[in-house]
Every structure is written in C-alpha cells, then in structure tokens.
C-alpha cells in the first residue's frame, strides 16, 4: 500500500521528534542535577587525587580545560549530553513496550542504572585518577560487553515469554562476571583507600539519582505527549 508507506514515514518522523524533545529535557535536567552533586561530592575527590598524581606524571602537554569555569561547564555539557543519550535509549524502550508515566519511568531508570552503572562497576569500580588498571581498550571492551549482556539479560528476565528465556536471561546477567573484568598486574593507587571508598559511594549515589531522574522525566513526558491529540501510534 502506497499510502501506508508514506504514513509510515510520517509517524516515524513524528515519534522520533518526540523522543528527541523528551530526551533533551530529561538529559539536561538530570545532567544538571548530576553536575551539582558531582561538584560538591565528587570533584573535590578528583582534585585531591590529581594533586597526588601531579608529581608522578609531568607529561601533560595536551590541551586541558582550565580549572574553574571552563572545567565545570564542560562537565555540565558532558553530563547533559550523556543524559540525552541514555534518555534516548530509555524512551525507545518505554515506547516499544507501551510503557509510560513517572512510575514506569522510574523502574526503567533503575534498570538503566543496573545496566550502565551497577553491572560494569562490579568488575571495574569507579576509579580516581592515578589508580593502576589494565589496558584501556580491554576495559572498555569488557565494560561495553557487560552493559549489552546485562541489558539483554534483564529484558529476557522481565519480558521473556517462557522459563527458557528467563533462565537464558539470568545466564546473560552472570556471564560477564564469570569471564571477569580485566585487572592490572599489580594493584596500586596514589589516593588513599578511604578516598577511593568515598569516591565509589558518592559515584554510586550520584549516578543512581541521575538515572532515576532520567527515567521519571522520560516516562512522565512520554505520557504527557501521548495524551495530546497527536498521540503515539500504539
């Protein structure tokens, strides 16, 4: 049907435009709040660790943002854009499953937190600058593999049609941790253990709030926009 093909594209563009708006709002709100938490809780720890790192690495000839306004605004921009990226994924998931509203959004937000923070952190905990770690590319690969495997695992557990899917889902959740994250040959850290611990706790807290906000705002806006007469195709 010719008509369907045209309508197909119209709906596609219309819904996609809504996702973009929702994600932009959710990302900026969550990113801004994340930056506030980061400024007061996390940045002091990074600075402290960098003070320790300075004498060891005197090789910084590359451009770096100046401490102060430039560095802070880059962090706000980074967090907001990251929030938009995550919100796009979350909104797509909500939309595909016909879920909407703050409460559903919060649940999806928690799932996002599990996929993108908890699961990778189990193997590669948040690290302060100056901590010894394995080859970057190996860690990035393991991180991405863990996130994808956890996302597939969670959707199989929650949306799987039968027991087989759910058992497979649990296996996908466990698999990256059986393989194990790449570890450095020897552990060493410039920052004290106490500083590291604080950093892990604050990061976990901060990112949890970040994800819940992304979820709640995305879910809420999705409901609001689909309540309009130009609602989503269902």
């Amino acid at each position: 049907m010719v008509v369907t093909a045209r309508r197909f594209l119209v709906i596609k563009m219309r819904d996609f435009r809504k996702f973009a708006i929702i994600s932009l709002i959710a990302g900026v709100v969550a990113g801004f709040l994340l930056s506030l938490g980061q400024h007061y809780l996390i940045q002091p720890l990074i600075f402290a660790a960098e003070q320790l790192e300075m004498p060891v690495h005197e090789h910084h000839h590359d451009w770096q943002p100046e401490d102060g306004f430039q560095r802070h605004s880059l962090t706000v921009i980074f967090n907001s854009l990251m929030g938009c990226g995550f919100a796009l994924l979350l909104t797509a998931g909500l939309y595909l499953k016909n879920h909407q509203g703050y409460l559903r959004g919060l649940m999806w937000g928690f799932a996002g937190y599990a996929v993108f923070f908890i699961a990778p952190s189990l193997g590669l905990p948040p690290e302060l600058p100056g901590t010894a770690s394995a080859e970057l590319l190996n860690r990035q690969t393991w991180w991405l593999f863990t996130a994808i495997s956890t996302a597939c695992g969670l959707s199989a557990v929650f949306f799987g049609k039968n027991r087989t899917f759910q058992i497979g889902g649990v296996m996908l959740l466990v698999l990256p941790h059986l393989i194990g994250a790449p570890q450095p040959d020897t552990f060493s850290s410039l920052a004290s253990e106490e500083l590291q611990q604080q950093f892990v706790i604050f990061s976990a807290l901060n990112n949890g709030i970040f994800w819940l906000i992304i979820g709640a705002v995305s879910g809420g806006l999705l409901r609001k926009l689909s309540a309009n007469n130009t609602g989503f195709s269902s």
């Binding site: 994340l34 980061q38 996390i42 940045q43 990074i46 590359d62 451009w63 770096q64 943002p65 560095r71 880059l74 962090t75 980074f78 967090n79 990251m82 993108f116 923070f117 990778p120 952190s121 590669l124 905990p125 948040p126 690290e127 302060l128 600058p129 770690s133 970057l136 860690r139 990035q140 991180w143 990061s203 901060n206 990112n207």
Partner: peptide
Amino acid sequence: HNAAHDGRHSAAFPCH
C-alpha cells in the same frame, strides 16, 4: 578525553 575527563570518571567509564 580531557574535556570529558571528570564526567567519565564519575560515570564509572574506563578512563586513561
């Protein structure tokens, strides 16, 4: 990398 540095650290992405 340097622009995104602090954000990557606090989001627990592998950095450095």
